[in-house]
Design a protein around this nucleic acid. Structure first.
Length: 273
DNA sequence: AATCCGCACAACCGCAGGAGT
DNA sequence: AACTCCTGCGGTTGTGCGGAT
């Protein structure tokens, strides 16, 4: 496979994004979407490579990013899924609405891994995320104000973890209500779990990439917030009252998970995807 | 008060793989 | 089939902050 030539570094800015750059990126994506990341910075007038723009958008500026501390349920979900999937952060992220793979990866490396290593599985977690934003109080105030400009929906609150659904895209750029709601979680059937998990991976990535861009391209002037939140999976879940299996039974389901893991290991061969 | 150290997290880098030609 | 382009992913690094010494 050919590898994309790295963006010509001549004259391209690196490092932390400035307020102005964020504004430019947000406003451009709101107006035009992001059908082509590579061409985006040029068209938007940003001295950044497309990769950097995409990363900034997906990891920080995207409207549906859920900021704030990870709940205990989210942490447990990460741990469970990491046991099952390994370092497939993007797949794990699809099960944590509003969380990015980068964020989950960071949390894992800086905190959860150590928590597991020290076998500290009981309630009190070590000091962490008391202020998720050590920097948030200073230079991120400005950044969050930027982000909030495209957050048409209020920040998620502590009840959000009750709305977690096993199979769910992290990105609300598009989602299908029926698809989301029909992906119910049947933990009793490990094959279905595997199927849904891996199906979810490709399914959502395809769905998201396709529909999101379609929306944007077909409605270039559509306000991104209205588009995204009109089909917000969180809203769907809220309406449908689908519960997260981890939330419902997560601490009581250790045996269940153990059973799942052991049964998976009994399988002669895992299908490759 | 100054320095050191660890933590948290944003951002970068290289690679893999799908899509298009 | 072979090639290029583009996107997404996972690993890693850089930087700023707060607490400890």
């Amino acid at each position: 496979m050919g590898r994309a030539p790295c963006c010509e570094k001549m004259g391209l800015k690196k490092g932390p994004w400035s307020h102005d750059e964020d504004q430019i990126l947000i406003s451009y994506i709101q107006q035009h979407g992001h059908p082509n990341w590579r061409a985006l910075p040029k068209h938007a007038g940003l001295l950044r490579c497309g990769k950097s723009c995409r990363l900034r958008w997906t990891n920080y500026l995207r409207p549906d990013i859920k900021r704030g501390n990870f709940s205990r349920e989210e942490e447990d979900t990460i741990i469970h899924l990491h046991e099952m999937l390994g370092n497939r952060w993007s797949v794990i992220a699809t099960n944590l609405p509003g969380r990015t793979d980068n964020e989950i990866k960071n949390v894992w490396h800086t905190y959860l891994k150590k928590r597991l290593e020290s076998h500290e599985t009981t309630s009190h977690a070590p000091k962490r995320h008391s202020t998720k934003s050590k920097r948030a109080s200073s230079d991120k105030n400005s950044e969050e104000s930027i982000v909030s400009q495209c957050h048409a929906q209020p920040q998620l609150n502590s009840h959000d973890e009750e709305q977690l659904v096993y199979v769910q895209p992290s990105c609300s750029e598009s989602s299908s209500e029926t698809e989301t709601t029909t992906n119910s979680f049947d933990v009793a059937k490990h094959e279905e779990i595997k199927h849904e998990t891996f199906l979810d991976d490709s399914f959502w990535s395809e769905t998201l990439s396709g529909e999101g861009d379609d929306i944007m391209e077909s409605n270039p002037t559509t306000n991104i917030s209205s588009v995204e939140f009109s089909s917000s999976p969180l809203k769907v879940i809220e309406n449908e009252d689908i519960r997260n299996p981890y939330t419902d039974c997560h601490m009581g389901s250790i045996d269940l998970w153990y059973d799942i893991f052991t049964r998976i290991e009994e399988l002669p061969e895992l299908p490759e995807f």
